[in-house]
Design a protein around this nucleic acid. Structure first.
Lengths: 246, 246
DNA sequence: TAAATTCGTCTATTTGTATAGACAAATAAT
DNA sequence: ATTATTTGTCTATACAAATAGACGAATTTA
């Protein structure tokens, strides 16, 4: 049942990690049920064609993730299989994609001033080096962190944003004071990546988990870009819904 | 924008590979357009805080993938950006592909008959236990596998579907022969997961890589469900684009 | 109780990864 | 033509990853 997986020695991914991911996949798929005993390390070593120490490192990684538990003399056991969330339980985030929410939504967890690089200058249609405000936000549903987002706005357009936010405590209100009361979403680009260390902490994810990446540009009523957003969401907790109407 | 990526030194993923994936993600997201010149290696090295040799290895990997091209004395250029995949109610893979000057192809890699379980019965609006055709398809662009898909259709509605699809290579064409001249997409639900072993082999991905999951239901002109599709795509090769019209 | 099994730890060696510096080769800028 | 920039190649060093073998510690089995 456990795979005759081929290990890639020069892929830049350590062998122990490849084994770790294979084991995790087998546990998720149900090959090894919660509480059941795994074959001994020596057997895995033979099966994968590696040294026992390499298997041990993979098991150690899964142990710190809480997925496995090893008892000296007894064996290694599945402590808790990582859940594959049922689709029906996933949060629908259609409003994010359609742009019907009042972005940047969620709680402001940080801000900074930085100069526009090539990408940002292009997305926001401003000269290279233009001073931008960067906003870091966290979106929570039912107490569970769902997405972390980074938004960039031209500072000249929202000159007093930081002060306004500090005073009003509201992102929407701070934008309104800068004269930005309405805008629409141009498009949203969606892809997926493995979570970064910083986001993993914010979202409460283990390293190696997938995140959905949403990149979008908001336009004002004249079609001028207002902000560029790059949001990262816990893929196992959410599902984006794209309506087929339009 | 390429900078705030934090490198993880103890993740079991080599630094050069983390840089490689960051660069690839930036190319997919449009930071570096096809044909444009990248910043010099020394600048990347400074930006990532690594040695130039490490950056070179990342670039070498992307060069063998055909994504970058390096000319001595001139610089490093984006040879071909990975595919963008627009989503709308008229989504047809071949149209998307041809619109981007990619050679379209779809291949039927398997089919079976199975009874509708609760989920499928609900999605297709048929009684539980209804006989369904299950289709496994592989979609390829420029010789690179992009998506594997599983589709379910009510067998009574499209009796000769398997043969027709195998012959024409087109879902649209096969449906036409079953008397379904047109259909539209009801909605598309998007999430991400880690690739399964079987899909990894089909897509040429390593275990632990993220895949985009697309679930959708196609309706005929009366609004009756025709097929339910669950497709899995290599996240590092594609980007879904949702227009913000609504 | 004794033996077998299985995880835990140790030392030593080989291969892969990353850093450091230097210089050549090709191109672009002056 | 000369200089600066940028990629390509080389040597050398330090550290992590993986292999190999041996033995101890805890548990189960006979």
């Amino acid at each position: 049942m456990t795979n005759p997986k081929s290990l890639d020695r020069s892929s830049g991914i350590a062998v122990w990690r490849q084994i770790m991911e294979t084991l995790k996949a087998d546990i998720v798929s149900g090959s090894f049920q919660t509480g059941s005993r795994l074959p001994p390390e020596s057997e895995f070593a033979a099966r994968f064609g590696v040294n026992r120490h390499t298997v041990r490192r993979a098991i150690a990684a899964l142990t710190t993730e809480g997925i496995l538990r090893a008892d000296q003399g007894r064996g290694t056991f599945v402590a808790s299989a990582p859940l594959s969330y049922p689709i029906s339980n996933r949060t629908r985030f259609s409003e994010i994609v359609s742009g019907q929410d009042r972005a940047p939504s969620g709680r402001l967890i940080g801000s900074a001033i930085e100069d526009a690089d090539a990408l940002l200058a292009n997305k926001l249609a401003v000269p290279l080096g233009t001073s931008l405000i960067r906003l870091e936000t966290l979106r929570v549903a039912d107490g569970v962190p769902m997405m972390v987002g980074t938004g960039w706005l031209e500072q000249a357009r929202v000159p007093n944003f930081v002060a306004d936010y500090a005073e009003s405590g509201s992102i929407t209100e701070a934008l309104k004071r800068a004269g930005i009361s309405d805008y629409r979403r141009k498009e949203t680009r969606i892809t997926a990546e493995l979570v970064e260390a910083r986001d993993a902490q914010q979202l409460g994810l283990a390293l190696g988990e997938p995140v959905l990446i949403l990149e979008s540009v908001d336009l004002d009523l004249d079609g001028t870009p207002i902000q560029y957003i790059r949001a990262r969401g816990a893929a196992d907790r959410m599902q984006l819904v794209v309506d087929g109407e339009s």
